[in-house]
Amino acid sequence: MGCDGGTIPKRHELVKGPKKIEKVDKNAELVARWYYCTLSQEKLKKPIVSCELGRLYNKDAVIEFLLDKSPDKPHAESAGHIKSIKNIIELNLSDNPAWEGDKGNTKGDTYDEQRAQFICPVVGLEMNGKHRFCVLRQCGCVFSERALKEIKTDVCHKCGGAFQAEDIILLNGDKDEVEELRKKMEEKRLKAKMEKKSKKPKAVESAVSNGGTTEEAPGPSKTLNGNKSNPKASSVSSAESKTSGKATTSSSSASKRPHLNDKSEAYKSIFTSHSSAKRTKDQSSNWVTHTAYYF
Rank of each mutant, 00 (worst) to 15 (best):
Lys256Pro: 01
Thr243Cys: 05
Leu30His: 04
Asp25Asn: 00
Lys228Ile: 13
Pro258Met: 08
Val24Asn: 02
Glu265Pro: 07
Glu265Ala: 11
Ser252Val: 15
Lys59Ile: 07
Arg11Asp: 06
Ala239Tyr: 10
Thr223Lys: 14
Asn261Val: 13
Ile169Gln: 02
Leu53Asn: 01
Cys134Leu: 02
Asn58Trp: 07
Asp262Glu: 12
Val288Asn: 10
Arg146Gln: 05
Lys199Phe: 04
Leu93Arg: 07
Gly104Arg: 11
Lys149Tyr: 05
Asp154Ala: 15
Ser275Asp: 08
His131Leu: 10
Lys183Thr: 00
Trp34Val: 01
Ala217Ile: 11
Glu29Lys: 09
Gly5Asn: 05
Pro121His: 06
Cys3Lys: 15
Ile21Pro: 02
Ala247Tyr: 07
Ser40Cys: 11
Lys242Tyr: 09
Asp102Val: 15
Ala147Arg: 05
Lys19Gln: 13
Ser70Trp: 01
His290Tyr: 12
Lys263His: 13
Ile168Glu: 00
Ser276Thr: 14
Met127Phe: 02
Leu91Lys: 00
Glu145Cys: 02
Ser237Asp: 07
Arg279Phe: 07
Lys228His: 08
Lys59Leu: 06
Ala98Ile: 13
Lys83Met: 11
Glu240His: 13
Leu91His: 01
Ser255Ile: 10
Ile169Phe: 03
Ala233Asn: 08
Asn96Gly: 03
Ala254Ser: 12
Ile63Ala: 02
Ser78Phe: 10
Gln138Leu: 15
Lys69Thr: 12
Ser235Cys: 09
Lys242Cys: 05
Arg11Trp: 10
Pro201Cys: 03
Ala203Ile: 02
Lys263Ile: 15
Thr106Phe: 01
Leu93Ala: 05
Asn210Leu: 07
Val24Glu: 01
Ser269Ala: 14
Glu42His: 09
Glu126Ile: 02
Arg189Met: 05
Glu22Gly: 12
Ser144His: 00
Cys51Gln: 01
Ala192Gly: 05
Asp109Cys: 08
Glu145Ala: 04
Gln283Tyr: 04
Arg132Val: 15
Ile88Trp: 00
Arg257Cys: 03
Glu179Ile: 11
Asn227Tyr: 10
Ala292Pro: 01
Gly140Ala: 01
Glu195Pro: 00
Pro231Trp: 07
Ser264His: 07
His157Met: 14
Lys196Ser: 06
Phe163Gly: 04
Lys202Phe: 03
Tyr293Met: 13
Ser237Gly: 06
Thr249Phe: 08
Asn227Glu: 06
Lys73Val: 15
Gly108Tyr: 10
Ile119Gln: 05
Leu170Gly: 09
Val24Arg: 03
Gly2Glu: 04
Ser238Glu: 06
Leu67Cys: 09
Ser284Asp: 02
Lys16Pro: 12
Gly245Ser: 08
Leu171Cys: 02
Ser206Thr: 09
Lys199Ile: 09
Ser144Trp: 00
Leu171Ser: 04
Gly5Cys: 07
Pro74Lys: 14
Ser251Val: 14
Lys23Pro: 01
Gln114Arg: 12
Glu180Tyr: 06
Leu66Asn: 01
Pro218Arg: 09
Asn286Lys: 14
Cys139Val: 10
Val204His: 11
Ile169Glu: 00
Ser255Tyr: 03
Pro71Met: 06
Arg182Gly: 10
His290Asn: 10
Arg11Ser: 13
Thr243Asn: 04
Ser235Pro: 05
